[in-house]
Write a protein that binds this DNA or RNA. Structure first.
Length: 493
RNA sequence: GGCGCCGUCGCCAAGUGGUAAGGCAGAGGUCUGCAAAACCUUCAUCCCCGGUUCAAAUCCGGGCGGCGCCUCCA
């Protein structure tokens, strides 16, 4: 079975054939660290994290680079506003980024370079472009001469002439062409700077990624990812720079994720219609956010709403409910059965379906559907297993039910892990969630426990009317009861 | 204005030529003192019009509606 990837460059799904067998090099544009990340950033992070995990699951040795843009106008502005050194800004938001990613269970990439650590490589790249006549200096600034690159516009499907016609009036009229973009910017007094052959300055945005990807992955690598909004001009410019300098098309497969929308509109800083990751995690379990982000195909827009987040959380409850119940059911019986063989585990039907879905351009939505079907089947199996203990006729089936359950659970966990899900301890998941809800509703847990105890006394006396009164009272508080063999448990509606 | 994407059940969402996955909500049922949870059953012909084809949600043309990129943006 082979992996197929939708390549922005060709607009088609193509078989994934890495440049070096068994290995994969992937570069994903990270964030500019001048503010907290919003849900749109979370989507890109979760999507490419999932791709990273899936490639590893498929057996590839993956070099995954995700950068930080830690020098740019917005950072300088922010530093000036807050009257702090620019490094204070970037350090603060890099830390915040790592916190957010940790909570979303986004794995650390193999390399996480900062632009400011890659300045010499950028200068070398720019120098090479200048030497080849593809870039020119203008009073301390260096621009890329777009017209020297005949394939400009190929990635984004744009024609140079159309672009020129539609180009805005530039502040800098000295550029040879309105499309030419800055590779190096002369620093203004008081601004951070690095020494270069063109004087003191700092890098343009696009050159960073060309330099950082090249530094860690070489002149050519397999996958380059980022949000759809980066296709033009950022990635177009990257191609122009890298290919202009090295002569190689740098990237084999370009992957772009769709936006997170709010009321059909793109979530973005400039529109102001965004929620930061931390805003959302105050209200929802981080895993619910991650599940939500993976519940649509990565290229489709996804609509952010409480309703959708609620649904994701509910789905998650089902999984964790099963893991908790199945764990409780199987654990005490483990000694009675032979351990399940690795072969049997790996032969679980879910894997084939999961792989098929993911092989088809990382179709996480379809993969999750298969996992959901498996979950339902396993719940049924679990009930059957519990009942079989009391039924002499079914006794003989128990070993079989047992290994089916164990294997199914393992399959769910393993596929879940590829999606970065189910990483919490089931008991922990529930407790944490409960705690949060109690705080939200300002419930008195002791009072709840007291009412439950009262109800259970009534039940013991078969005073059903009395018992129902307590139930109703709890219901008014938002508490729902579940009478299980192990006692009465409760949760918040 | 240029380029591009999208429109599938009340909601979310798969499906790129072979006769509509999955989830939520709803309805009925099993279980339960009653519930809850879980499970079972049930629940759409795919924005409109025309065309190609034995066959189209899927391809082509034309509408209508929504969105994105063209400027910093995941």
């Amino acid at each position: 079975m082979s992996l197929r990837i939708h390549n922005t460059l060709t607009g088609k799904k193509e078989d994934f054939v890495p440049l070096r067998e068994g290995k994969a090099g992937m570069y994903v544009c990270g964030v500019t660290v001048y503010d907290y990340c919003h849900v749109g950033h979370a989507r890109a992070a979760a999507v490419f994290d999932t791709i990273y995990r899936y490639l590893q699951y498929k057996g590839y040795d993956v070099a995954y680079v995700r950068n930080f843009t830690d020098i740019d106008d917005k950072i300088i502005n922010r530093a000036n506003e807050e009257n702090v050194p620019w490094q204070a800004v970037t350090e603060k938001y890099i830390r915040a980024f790592h916190e957010d990613m940790g909570r979303l269970n986004v794995a650390a990439p193999t390399h996480e370079p900062k632009a400011t650590e890659t300045i010499p490589e950028m200068i070398a790249l720019i120098a090479s472009l200048v030497e080849q006549g593809r870039a020119y200096e203008l009073d301390g600034d260096v621009y890329y001469a777009v017209k020297t690159f005949k394939d400009y516009g190929r990635l984004s499907g744009k024609k140079i002439d159309d672009l020129i016609a539609g180009a805005r009036v530039e502040v800098n009229e000295r550029k040879r062409d309105p499309l030419d973009f800055a590779l190096w910017k002369k620093s203004k007094p008081g601004e951070p700077f690095w020494e270069s052959p063109w004087g003191r300055g700092r890098p343009g945005w696009h050159i960073e990624c060309s330099a950082m990807s090249r530094k860690f992955l070489g002149d050519r690598f397999d996958i380059h990812g980022g949000g759809k909004d980066l296709v033009f001009p950022h990635h177009e410019n990257e191609i122009a720079q890298s290919r202009g300098a090295t002569g190689h098309a740098p990237v084999k497969y370009w992957i772009h994720n769709g936006f997170v929308n709010i009321d059909k509109e793109k979530m973005s800083k400039s529109l102001g219609n965004f929620f930061t990751i931390r805003d959302i995690l105050g209200k929802y379990h981080p895993e619910a956010l991650r599940l939500f982000l993976l519940s649509s195909h990565y290229r489709s827009p996804i609509d952010f709403s409480d309703r959708n987040l609620d649904e994701a959380e509910k789905t998650l409850d089902r999984y964790y409910g099963f893991f908790a119940e199945a764990g409780k059911t199987l654990e005490p019986e483990k000694d009675k059965f032979d351990p399940v063989s690795e072969d049997f585990m790996q032969s679980h039907a879910l894997f084939k379906k999961f792989d098929e879905a993911m092989d088809d351009d990382f179709n996480t939505a379809a993969a999750l559907a298969h996992m959901g079907e498996t979950l339902r089947a396993l719940n049924a199996l679990k009930d059957e297993f519990v009942l079989s203990a009391k039924n002499p006729v079914k006794m003989a089936e128990r070993p079989y039910l047992y290994i089916k359950l164990e294997a199914g659970m393992a399959a769910l966990r393993e596929t879940g892990n590829v999606l970065g899900l189910f990483f919490a301890d089931p008991a922990d998941y529930k407790t944490r969630k409960q705690k949060k809800k109690i705080e939200e509703l300002k419930l008195d847990a002791a009072e709840v426990e007291r009412l439950i105890a009262a109800r259970n006394s009534a039940r013991a006396a078969k005073a059903w009317d009395q018992a129902d009164k307590f139930r109703d009272e709890l219901a008014r508080m938002g508490v729902v009861l579940e009478d299980t063999p192990g006692g009465t448990i409760w949760k918040i509606k």
